[in-house]
Write a protein that binds this DNA or RNA. Sequence first.
RNA 1: GCUCUCGUAGCUCAGCUGGAUAGAGCGCUUGCCUCCGGAGCAAGAGGCCACAGGUUCGAAUCCUGUCGAGAGUACCA
Length: 545
Amino acid sequence: MKTFLKSHLEKALSSAGLSYSAEDLYFEIPKNQDHGDLSTNVAFTLAKRQKANPQAVARQILEHLQLPETLVGKPEIAGPGFINFKFKPAWYLTGVSDLLKQGQTYGRHETGRGKRVMVEFVSANPTGPLTIGHGRQAVLGDTIANLMEWLGYEVVREYYFNNAGRQMRVLGDSVRLRYLEELGDSNPFPEDYYQGEYIRDIARDLIREHGASLKTLDDVTLFKDKAESVIFEDIKNSCRRLGIHHDVYYNENSLYENGHVDGALALLREKGVIYDKDGAVWFKTTDFGNEQDKVLVKSTGEPTYRLPDIAYHIQKFKRGFDQVVDIFGSDHIATYPDVLLALKILGYDPEMITVLIHQFVTVTQAGEIVKMSTRKANFITLDWLTDEAGADVVRFFFLMRSMGAHLNFDLDLAKKETDENPVFYLQYAHARIASIIRKAEDAGELTWTAETSLAPLGNPDELDLMRLLLQFPETVYLTATHYEPHRLIVYLNELAAQFHKFYHSNYVIGVGKDLGNARLALCAATKTVLKNGFDILGITAPERM
RNA sequence: GCUCUCGUAGCUCAGCUGGAUAGAGCGCUUGCCUCCGGAGCAAGAGGCCACAGGUUCGAAUCCUGUCGAGAGUACCA
């Protein structure tokens, strides 16, 4: 709808002899419907540049603007120089017919066709169950991946993990100590070890499988491996319950085995941004405006997380991705600038990497803030939340706020308010439409197809509903390109509200065949858009509730 | 100390390259079920958009400063 007007406007501008650039042509949907369906402030932008009166410029534009009268009404100049466009019903009718023809592909785009994008998310090391914080990231990542698919990209969902290093040794030893404890040997359990009950569960598993035969084993490898496989399975299951899967689990260790870590260091060294001091290897980030140089390899010979991260991202591009999306919690906010800097030095375009930082979930219970820490075991697991609220509610809840905002999760409210959760409002609209369609078709009176004549539609409720339906493709596009899933929820909410409003004063059944069929088709169109939106969000579209 | 994110209704939050009268949900008040699903609809109360300056035709939105919240600031990840 915008591109249509845009091309006409461009013609008008050039025939009026006004110079413009593509960015000048911007349309917005006015908040106030008296201002039409679309509005442009192009007269302001051009007037500013030429130091002219915006209203005069607007008049000049309109003199040269020719639009098909069957689709668009006469544009009007309003206020200090806005140009407002109002569409005629015919525009909506053809739009909704198209919608019905496209069905479940309505809202998809081609902009990413032939391009590959990787979305990396969760990437929690297998040291414990996923928490609510991980849950937010998991749902965000999966939904952003869905959105990229709707833009036409080929998407790979990736999980990066590390099963080596100190953390994992501590994990293994934690299991070992619990194992001994369960067998009656009490040992002091260090405070910085993993305190969670799940460690004890794993230890009991080992007793079931091996009895006391591991008692004299000092090497933690077996304990570590067992913990890793049990926990990883648990993590995957937590994701699965929310409809989330990963295509690739990328092991940090493979970067060492294939020489990519050393390779990355060597490349940086060639660029002269590396030096040795105090037995460690340093990255000269101060040359690029940083306060401090960063260590890439410790004096122990062990690399810090930065170096494998750099190597990993080099591999992402070598593996042929055109675009990379990384999703981190705000606790990783300091780590990515060094990685991006290194990639830039090595000649990669940092624009190809989109780093999305989401704020943490703060959990309150009985007015108290619950602190989350995997190690302290004072955390709330994602599984628990899924048990309590259900997958749809969990997904929706994590998506409904912008990721830059802290998400306040009131547990008491989440538990007792499930009936009034906004997700039900949307799903109810879908179920209600399904019910109407069933009833109308069962009565044998009404039918609809993509060819059904929508001409009888035209009252304000119907036009408002159609207007919103036709905004869906653009909403998907904006939601995806801004990586802001909550925008789609805001839109779907508006759509559901408009449908309920339409429903209350416009009968489908019992109003005659022509109008009935047309309204039935409008219901079907609404159902399609809701369903397509739910698919992107990953929530179910119930036929009955 | 420094960096990043944030501050909008009683609460939780939207507000699209800066646009016209600042919105939604929950909670509160009041109406609406002989009729397609009342998990709904309609109406109402509720605001110095943290504060102070600046930029311009125009600021919740951009810039500077102050205050307040969160995260980061390791030879931990």
